[in-house]
Design a protein around this nucleic acid. Structure first.
Lengths: 156, 156
DNA sequence: TGTTAAAACTATACAAAGTATAGTATAAAA
DNA sequence: TTTTATACTATACTTTGTATAGTTTTAACA
């Protein structure tokens, strides 16, 4: 997925109940985020590394059906270049590498959580064994779900 | 973006601080959500219809640079089939159609808001005129940002 | 009463991106 | 010494997306 940089999106904003930002926006932050996160496989790779703690090249390959080594290699490089992941060398004899999220990478987790929430509500019949829709606190009772979004919301 | 349905992702869950769901998951909800929302242009089209209230075929085309009529036509059909958008005929003489989000479609807005938050924090230099990172309440003071997520979080 | 214009697509050829398969380099374990 | 594992890289092929143009319907305009 590639997005060009020219920006026409905010030019026309009609009136009725539009969610209108109160600060001047030059480039749409959604489009900007999707420029990195919107490519095929990228969010699943972040899910593996950050959520499931599947952090090695071949483990990720095993985990994501359809993903090929070439594309995984490209995506890891892109994510590393964008500062979302970093690699730590476990050993250097049989080159053993672990990938982990940076602070910037960790800030994508609220997006993954919202994708989880959406899927758990509207696709519960294929997601859950009992086919019942669930809210986030039912899926992750150990997480203080409201605190997840503190990075992005001021508590004033 | 197309994702196959076989599910191997939850098979290996190592130990340290994995976000482990407390209910049995058959298909990953993130992968499931991305099956519909993860295709190129889809989230930008939802942004137009739901956020910016750009709701007509050619208005959306004008708004999203690089999107072609063929792909827009395909995406609108996919989204309609999946029940995320519906069309209302304004007039039928010069066929004038308006697209709007269904309740299911509106439930994708928290995902868009998180993409906004991520872009506003980490790409503020290209998003905002003054290049300063911002939290959600600063961008949308009129929105009760915490309430946006009520659909997905139990208040018990 | 043509002609133009707008809306909402549809068709075709072409280009970019992703996929399948196989191969490389390194080094430890059997 | 052969096998296995890790982390890629290369090549050909297939799918998907892109650019350009065309179609249909009606309505307003000259």
């Amino acid at each position: 997925m590639q997005f060009t940089n020219s920006y026409k999106e905010e030019s026309v904003i009609p009136d009725d109940s539009v969610v209108r930002p109160k600060v001047k926006i030059i480039n749409c932050p959604i489009k900007t985020s999707l420029g990195i996160l919107g490519k095929k496989w990228t969010l699943l790779i972040i899910r593996d590394i950050g959520f499931l703690k599947i952090q090695r090249f071949n483990r990720i390959l095993d985990s994501i059906h359809g993903l090929t080594p070439r594309v995984l290699s490209m995506r890891l490089k892109e994510l590393e270049k964008e500062g979302l992941i970093e690699c730590i060398e476990e050993t250097k004899s049989p080159t053993r590498v672990l990938w982990r999220l940076t602070d910037k990478g960790k800030d994508t987790l609220p997006i993954l959580i919202m994708l989880t929430a959406f899927g758990s509500k509207w696709y519960s019949s294929i997601v859950f064994e009992d086919k019942m829709p669930r809210k986030l606190n039912e899926i992750f009772p150990q997480l203080e779900t409201k605190k997840i979004f503190n990075t992005y919301i001021n508590n004033s």
